[in-house]
Design a protein around this nucleic acid. Structure first.
Length: 802
DNA sequence: TCGTCAACTTAGTAGATGTTAG
DNA sequence: CTAACATCTACTAAGTTGACGA
């Protein structure tokens, strides 16, 4: 289930060392590289070790640099010998995130004036606030925007339709700070109350059954349910779970039968686990009718929550169910993994809807945490979660107009980058030699982001998994191998490993060397003067709205376009589909989108290989048969018979064995199944002798194979050369198909195509591909993707290019 | 100027559902 | 038809980013 792709190290220890509340970055001494010697007023000291520069820009930084020696304690230092054993130096002064003063800003209510939004100012649109407007839903009239660069201004469509066929992409929707004018919905679905276990199912401590209070039993159950998963084997998970479990247990007065639960190791959850398994099994056993009616009930319950009304139109809601309580399943080496995720109640939930909307009813005695009317955001409800104290949102579905619009914007922005990318690239190449360290770091960072599709890499707190992106790369994540090879090895988002050995630009290599120069050491930031906000601010100078992540979108879509361009318009739909997937895969690899190999991947590859080998064997047999009919063929068609001795005797024997075993197995199964059926229909059962009979046939076959192996002679019952050749041809086709499928399977086993398809590849590329190549869109986009990308499907002709 | 954080986007996985080989 | 396998969806964790406040 879990693959080795995600690196987990649970042996991490926080060592409080310094009192500094802030993480300090370490900078190498000013660059003395040969390539910076021209003098500019700004020029920086070129003395290697001492900082003598008085130049404007970098002085202060240099002073920082001097302070280096003392800095190590302020630094998030990870000494890692083998990359496994990590040691964090924790910042003591960290503030507990929990105690934030909650300033509820009510944007929508407050007037125009408070919103100094540039976008608004620039576009000079009159905001139409929800209040002013809610009555005339749909009849929204906006002033036209004068400076919409790329788009021709389409006349505003004033549609009254209250269905979901609203085509926002045909409307002129220029303001996105106001997300809606009216918004009505029915709230959220809360998880069902906990149902206590039957009294015979218990946690055991040692061999004593423990009578847990209901609340504690629930928590124990969360763990029990995961008993056979990797989580339950993770010591951090166990520890966090157990702490929270004991806490809950204490709060409800301890076990009812006085057992003292102290040590995790003595807890035996297996009875509980077995019970859950049993329940699962029973659920599976239900008749299809029962299942159907259960499903029907569920649908009925969910129906009101599935949709909401936005500006008078019906739109789908995404995650309308509140997340149920459970154990937090953090990814990678998350320090909080296993902690109890508490139950969310109505009073924890903030609803967002318009002023005139009916407030969804609750049960007697319950009330919503807050009702808000904020039309500048696109969430319907939210609550604060207790693991990292952040918010969870109930939002629109992916197919909603609002999400579609932001998607569209995202891709348009990425497309826009086309027009700026050349100067940007020229600049960062140039700046690789900039005398100012900060500029150089920017240049290298953008290079990495552009070329290797790294993420921005924001700073993370100590109570999250230690993962990095570009700006947060540390000394130990980059290994330099002269002349210009770099090995990246770090954990990125979701603790997915990024490992690449690549050749880089000479100057980039040089700079990385500088960035790693002593006194820097493992644990120190490579880009000690950089963070995403600095980088993004810099990027904005090139193009409004340009940020680090746009490069990923741009490069992904650009790559896809290039790959699609290479595909010849020929072959079957299936073949084209395969080619599309290959293109998709290039992108996924670029973005490092991985997935874990499935539990039985190896096995299924083995199976497929066996299968192919068997086909080969059959083919060879047939060829031998031909030769038996006509020996002279061997000389005449050497090529045709070249693989005839490919299989060793051992290979052949093992194939025989496999085939025979499979057939025997099949006989047994068929026998069992058949009798099962007859039994239920009260027919006469097959007897053992029937089975014997089948097996005897297989045995005959086995003997035949055995003989064949000895004599090399094939039993040709009245086959002709022509017939044999026909069969061979068929086999060859099957072999080829199987090989392609296998290859595809192997290549895809660790690569996840979905993420790039959903988030990075401009869907219009896929639509154009389908149109041009006559591939049905259903082959490429699943139903939900077709809904999400409706705007692309309906708006593009086959000449469109990214 | 800086840190914080709300809001939105991107991410992999578990389990449901659909498909197919046998 | 059934099991095995592939595919899809729901779920929720984990990123990025701009706005905000001190």
């Amino acid at each position: 289930m879990t693959s080795d792709k995600r690196e987990v190290s649970s042996d991490e220890e926080d060592t409080p060392l310094s009192q500094t509340s802030k993480r300090r970055k370490v900078s190498p001494l000013q660059d003395s590289d040969d390539d910076i010697s021209e003098s500019t007023p700004e020029s920086v000291s070129s003395t290697t070790r001492s900082v003598s520069s008085t130049s404007a820009v970098d002085v202060s930084n240099d002073e920082d640099d001097i302070a280096l020696s003392q800095v190590s304690e302020n630094v998030k230092a990870k000494s890692s010998g083998d990359g496994k054993g990590k040691e964090k130096i924790k910042n003591k002064g960290r503030i507990e995130t929990g105690s934030r003063s909650k300033k509820t800003k009510v944007k929508s209510e407050s007037s125009e004036s408070s919103e100094s939004n540039q976008k608004k100012a620039r576009s000079g649109i009159k905001k139409i606030k929800q209040e002013e407007n809610s009555k005339k839903a749909g009849g929204v009239k906006k002033l036209k925007k004068e400076e919409n660069e790329s788009e021709s201004t389409i006349e505003e469509k004033r549609e009254e339709e209250v269905d979901n066929s609203y085509k926002w992409w045909e409307a002129n929707n220029d303001d996105d700070t106001i997300k809606w004018h009216t918004l009505k919905h029915n709230g959220v679905i809360f998880p069902p109350a906990y149902e206590p276990l039957p009294s015979h199912v218990k946690l055991y401590y040692g061999n004593q059954p423990v009578d847990l209070p209901v609340k504690a039993e629930e928590v124990a159950g969360f763990f029990a349910a995961l008993l056979e998963s990797d989580h339950a084997k993770n010591p951090v998970f166990q520890k966090n779970f157990f702490e929270d479990f004991l806490q809950v247990l204490k709060e409800c007065g301890g076990p009812l039968n006085g057992v003292e639960v102290k040590s995790f190791d003595k807890c035996d959850f297996s009875k509980m686990f077995a019970y859950f398994e049993l329940q699962k099994e029973q659920k599976k056993q239900l008749s299809s009718l029962e299942k159907k009616s259960l499903r029907f009930e569920r649908e009925k319950l969910e129906e009101p929550f599935k949709f909401c009304e936005l500006d008078g139109r019906k739109e789908q809601v995404g995650n309308f169910r509140i997340e149920p309580p459970g154990l937090f399943r953090g990814r990678g080496a998350h320090p909080k993994t296993g902690k109890l995720k508490r139950r969310v109640y109505p009073e924890d939930v903030v609803l967002n809807l318009d002023r005139t909307a009916a407030i969804p009813p609750l049960c007697e005695g319950q009330k919503w945490g807050e009702i808000r009317h904020d039309n500048t955001v696109q969430w319907l409800a939210m609550w604060r979660e207790n693991i990292s104290n952040s918010f969870k949102y109930v939002r629109f579905a992916a197919s909603s107009s609002l999400n579609g619009q932001s998607d569209f914007k995202k891709f348009e922005k990425a497309r826009q980058l086309k027009d700026y990318i050349d100067p940007i690239r020229a600049d960062y190449r140039k700046n690789l030699k900039n005398k100012v360290m900060l500029e150089r770091q920017k240049a290298v960072a953008i290079y990495l982001i552009d070329v290797f599709a790294l993420r921005a890499g924001g700073e993370k707190s100590e109570d999250e998994a230690d993962t990095v992106g570009c700006c947060s790369l540390r000394y130990e994540h980059v290994t330099l191998k002269p002349p210009n090879t770099v090995i990246f090895d770090f954990l990125g988002k979701d603790s997915i490993r990024f490992y690449q050995e690549v050749e880089v630009d000479k100057q980039v290599f040089k700079n990385l060397t500088i960035f790693k120069r002593p006194p820097k050491q493992p644990g120190h930031q490579l880009f000690d003067r950089l963070d995403p906000s600095i980088l993004n601010k810099y990027l904005q100078n090139y193009m409004p709205g340009l940020t680090a992540k746009v490069f990923r979108t741009y490069n992904a879509s650009k790559t896809m376009q290039d790959q699609l361009d290479l595909i010849p318009n020929e072959g079957t739909v299936a073949e084209k589909n395969l080619k599309y997937n290959a293109a998709n895969r290039t992108v996924a690899i670029l973005c490092n989108h991985q997935r874990s190999v499935t539990k039985n991947h190896a096995q299924s590859v083995q199976k497929a290989n066996d299968r192919i080998q068997e086909l080969e064997w059959q083919k060879i047999r047939l060829k031998r048969a031909i030769l038996e009919l006509d020996k002279s063929q061997l000389k005449k068609r050497q090529k045709f018979f070249e693989e005839i001795d490919d299989l060793t005797k051992e290979d052949e024997a093992s194939i025989h064995k496999r085939v025979i075993e499979r057939e025997i197995d099949r006989c047994h199964k068929k026998f069992a199944r058949e009798n099962e059926k007859r039994k239920s229909e009260n027919e006469e059962l097959l007897t053992e002798s029937d089975l014997e009979e089948w097996l005897a046939k297989v045995e005959d076959k086995r003997k035949l194979f055995e003989k064949e192996l000895k004599t090399n002679e094939i039993d040709i019952n009245n086959a002709t050369i022509e017939k044999l050749e026909k069969q061979i041809e068929k086999l060859e086709q099957r072999i080829e198909v199987s090989c392609i499928q296998l290859k595809d399977k192997e290549e895809n086993s660790q690569v996840s195509l979905g993420t790039s398809k959903i988030n990075y590849i401009d869907p219009r590329l896929s639509v154009v591909f389908c149109k041009k190549y006559g591939v049905p869109i259903e082959k490429i986009f699943t139903k939900s993707l077709r809904e999400k990308f409706k705007w692309a499907i309906e708006s593009v002709d086959e000449n469109w290019r990214f």
